[in-house]
Simulated scan of single mutants.
Amino acid sequence: MASFLICLVAAFIHDYPDDVAIISVAAVELLLVVYAAVAGVRQLGGDSLVGAGWEFWGYVLTAFIIPIIAFWWAVTDKTRWSNVVLAAVGATVAVMLVRMEQIWHGGIFA
């Protein structure tokens, strides 16, 4: 959520994506790499998913791709809207992480 707020503030302040906004999205990507590595180790260690494995790993792959696409958007389109796209990454990945945890552990909406 911090990346979402940083990029949203950048959209109001700047006409182009600045380094802080891009670095915050890179931090989201790093978080996803660590999350996927830990999930892989847990699953190989015998910790099973409550939901479907293909759905969980599909979410992981999709969440991994979203920041990369937004980064390239921000690099090629130097407008205020690039910051909004970068902000959408933080919000989208946060929702996807909640859903991944629901698939892993189960829950109300699983």
Rank of each mutant, 00 (worst) to 15 (best):
A2D: 15
S3C: 08
F4P: 02
F4I: 00
L5K: 12
L5I: 14
I6L: 06
I6R: 11
L8N: 10
L8T: 15
V9G: 10
V9N: 14
V9P: 04
V9E: 13
A10P: 04
A10L: 01
A10Q: 00
A11L: 09
F12Y: 12
F12S: 08
I13Q: 03
H14Q: 12
H14Y: 15
H14L: 14
D15G: 15
D15Y: 02
Y16H: 12
Y16T: 03
P17N: 00
P17A: 05
D18E: 12
D19G: 04
D19T: 07
V20M: 13
V20G: 03
V20L: 14
V20E: 14
A21S: 15
A21W: 10
I22L: 12
I23D: 13
S24D: 10
A27D: 14
V28A: 01
V28S: 12
V28W: 03
L30T: 09
L30H: 03
L31C: 07
L31T: 08
L31F: 13
V34H: 01
V34I: 15
Y35M: 03
A36V: 13
A36S: 06
A36R: 07
V38Y: 11
V38F: 14
V38A: 14
G40W: 02
G40D: 07
V41C: 03
R42A: 15
Q43K: 06
G45R: 13
G46H: 11
D47C: 02
S48C: 12
S48E: 15
S48M: 00
L49A: 04
V50D: 07
A52C: 01
G53I: 00
W54Y: 11
W54N: 07
E55P: 00
F56I: 05
F56R: 07
W57H: 08
G58K: 01
Y59S: 00
Y59V: 02
V60S: 06
L61C: 11
L61D: 15
T62I: 07
T62N: 06
T62F: 01
T62A: 13
A63G: 09
A63W: 01
F64A: 14
F64Q: 07
I66P: 02
P67A: 09
P67E: 09
P67L: 08
I68E: 05
I69Y: 04
A70H: 01
F71D: 09
W73P: 01
W73M: 05
A74Y: 12
V75Q: 10
T76M: 08
D77Q: 11
D77E: 11
K78L: 12
K78C: 03
K78V: 08
T79C: 10
T79K: 04
R80D: 06
R80I: 14
W81A: 06
W81E: 13
N83F: 07
V85Y: 09
V85T: 11
V85D: 13
A87E: 09
A87P: 01
A87K: 00
A88T: 12
G90S: 01
G90H: 11
A91I: 07
T92R: 06
T92E: 15
A94D: 02
A94Q: 05
A94W: 10
V95C: 09
V95T: 11
M96H: 00
M96V: 03
M100R: 06
Q102T: 02
I103V: 11
I103R: 01
W104G: 10
G106V: 01
G106N: 07
I108H: 02
F109C: 05
A110Q: 05
